[in-house]
Simulated assay, not measured.
Amino acid sequence: MSYVGPDFDPPQPRRSRRGPLTVALTALVPGALAGWLAWQAVGDDSGGGSDRAVPASSSSSPGSAGPSSSSSRPSASATDDSKADTPSAPASSSSKPAASGSLKGKVVVIDPGHNPSNFRHSSEINHKVNIGTNWKECDTTGTSTNAGYTEARFTLDVAHRMRAILEKQGATVKLTQDGDRSFGPCVDERARIGNAAHADAVVSLHADGSASGNRGFHVILPASVHAGAADTRPIVAASRDLGEHIAGLFVRETGSAPSNYVGDGTGLVVREDLGGLNLSTVPKVFIECGNMRDTKDAALLTSGAWREKAARGISEGIVGFLHG
Rank of each mutant, 00 (worst) to 15 (best):
A207Q: 05
L249H: 06
R293N: 08
V202A: 07
T295N: 13
G255T: 04
E316Q: 12
G320K: 11
V282T: 03
V262Y: 11
I246Q: 07
L279I: 05
V219F: 12
M292W: 00
N214D: 15
D231Y: 14
S210C: 12
H206Q: 13
L279A: 08
A305P: 01
N195I: 13
L322T: 01
D241L: 09
V225K: 05
K284T: 13
S259W: 06
D264M: 12
L268R: 01
V319Y: 00
L277E: 12
G228W: 14
W306S: 08
I314D: 05
V202M: 10
H226A: 15
I246F: 00
R192C: 00
G265C: 01
A311H: 05
A211M: 10
S315A: 15
L242G: 02
L242W: 10
A230S: 14
I314P: 04
R215I: 04
E244S: 14
G216N: 02
I246D: 10
F286L: 15
T254P: 03
I314K: 11
D208T: 10
R293Q: 07
S303C: 03
F286D: 15
G265M: 01
V269D: 06
V251R: 00
A247S: 06
R293C: 04
R233A: 08
G216L: 08
L274F: 13
S259E: 04
N195M: 11
H206A: 07
D200V: 05
L277K: 10
S259V: 02
I235G: 01
V236S: 03
V319Q: 01
I314Q: 04
A257N: 15
S224F: 00
G275D: 14
V319K: 03
F286P: 08
T232M: 02
I235R: 07
A230C: 13
L249N: 06
R233K: 14
N214W: 13
G255R: 10
A257L: 13
S224T: 00
A299R: 15
S259N: 05
G209F: 01
I318R: 02
F217Q: 12
V225N: 07
G194Y: 03
V225S: 02
E308F: 00
L268K: 01
T232P: 02
R233E: 11
S315N: 12
R271A: 02
W306D: 11
A237R: 14
A298E: 11
H206M: 14
A238T: 07
E272F: 07
L277Y: 12
V282W: 06
H198C: 06
D208R: 03
E316N: 09
E308Q: 09
L221G: 02
R252A: 09
W306Q: 15
I246H: 04
G265L: 03
D273C: 08
A199V: 11
I193H: 02
A199G: 08
R252M: 00
W306V: 14
G194C: 04
K284N: 14
S210E: 15
A211C: 11
A199I: 12
R233P: 03
L205C: 09
L274W: 08
R233Q: 09
K284P: 03
F217L: 11
A199W: 13
V225G: 03
D264L: 08
V219L: 13
D294R: 00
V236M: 08
R240W: 05
A196M: 10
V319C: 03
K284L: 15
V236L: 11
N195Q: 11
D297R: 07
L279N: 04
H218L: 06
F250N: 05
G213K: 12
V251M: 10
I246E: 11
G209M: 04
H206N: 13
T232F: 05
